[in-house]
């Protein structure tokens, strides 16, 4: 009963928030609704018994990725509304709907066969974090290390790409900086 209430609440709220993310003209609204939707998605994970995944979603997505987005937003002009010209909105809705149907068929096709059996079954009486840790550090050790290396490379790439000419302001014009410099010289 509680699961049903929570599921419908989370799904309606998530879909609504993500619709705001996709449709909104304001970057700030889009970003805050995306963050809220990600928090609610971690609620889905907690319902499904994937506790560790829910915690990782909260820490990595809401904590790290959204913080990164909000820092990057400070480089761009976030208060201005975004003007986008859409040439053919009906075609977009048609293509999106068709792709959704194809997606449902793709997901549903293998599930309705009986050939699926658990490769790494969950254990009774063992916590989810412990179970995940055992599988992650035995069967998935090499992909885990490769993912760590990939994150290191991405971190270096992010620092190098964003760090060039960090002392210059992007949104204000350069004359404002010159004024500050001349004021300093006068003193």
């Amino acid at each position: 009963m509680y699961e049903m209430v929570a599921f419908y609440l989370f799904s309606v709220l998530t879909i609504g928030l993500f619709l705001i993310t996709v449709m909104s003209k304001n970057v700030l609204y889009a970003m805050t609704s995306l963050a809220a939707g990600m928090v609610l998605i971690s609620g889905f994970f907690f319902i499904l018994g994937a506790d560790f995944l829910g915690v990782v979603q909260l820490i990595a997505y809401v904590g790290a990725i959204m913080a990164l987005y909000s820092f990057a937003m400070m480089f761009f002009d976030a208060t201005r509304d975004i003007k986008e010209k859409n040439t053919n909105p009906a075609l977009v809705f048609l293509l999106g709907g068709l792709s959704a149907v194809v997606l449902v068929l793709m997901f549903a096709a293998p599930i309705h066969s009986d050939a699926i059996q658990a490769l790494y079954p969950m254990h009774e009486g063992v916590g989810n974090a412990q179970d995940v840790g055992i599988v992650l550090f035995t069967k998935y050790l090499v992909p885990f290390e490769v993912a760590a290396l990939m994150l290191l490379v991405a971190m270096i790439a992010g620092i190098i790409l964003a760090g060039k000419k960090m002392d210059q302001s992007l949104t204000e014009d350069m004359s404002a900086d010159d004024e500050i410099l001349t004021q300093k010289d006068e003193k």
Partner: peptide, 11 residues
Amino acid sequence: IAASEVAVGLG
């Protein structure tokens, strides 16, 4: 993958 995509993409 999403985390590294965001780091590189935002750069």
